Amino acid sequence: MITINAIIQAKQGQEEALFMELKKVVEPSREETGCVEYTLHQSLDEDGTFVFYETWEDEAALKAHVESEHYKAYRQATSELTDSRTVHKLRKV
């Protein structure tokens, strides 16, 4: 299993627009083969900070996700709305 923790910070004034785009990728991602969990969180402490918590069965499932049309569309749609994006690729120990 592979867990992804992606922390995304909106550009100032783009918080709602980013949130709307992030929500669009959730359902299609959950339907992908190999997706165990795909959850979007919104920070209670920092405005405009969103976190994806994802679990994938294996590297092949994660790779297929990154190559999917809905993922590519999400990345393109959010590129001008995002101030920073930090991704942690994790395994349970």
Rank of each mutant, 00 (worst) to 15 (best):
I2M: 10
I4S: 13
I4W: 08
A6M: 10
A6P: 05
Q9K: 07
Q9D: 07
K11W: 00
Q12L: 06
G13V: 01
E15T: 12
E16T: 11
M20G: 02
E21R: 07
E21Y: 02
K23V: 12
K24L: 15
V25F: 06
E27P: 05
E27D: 13
P28V: 04
E31Y: 01
E31C: 09
E32R: 03
C35N: 14
Y38A: 12
T39G: 05
T39H: 12
L40T: 06
L40V: 08
S43F: 02
G48R: 05
F52L: 11
Y53I: 15
E54F: 08
W56G: 02
E57T: 11
D58V: 00
E59Q: 10
A61W: 06
K63G: 00
H65D: 07
E67H: 01
S68W: 00
E69T: 09
H70A: 11
Y71R: 04
K72P: 03
A73P: 00
A73V: 13
Y74S: 10
R75A: 14
R75H: 13
R75G: 11
Q76P: 07
L81Y: 04
L81T: 08
T82H: 03
V87T: 14
V87Q: 08
H88Q: 13
H88P: 08
L90A: 07
R91P: 02
R91E: 11
K92C: 12
K92R: 14
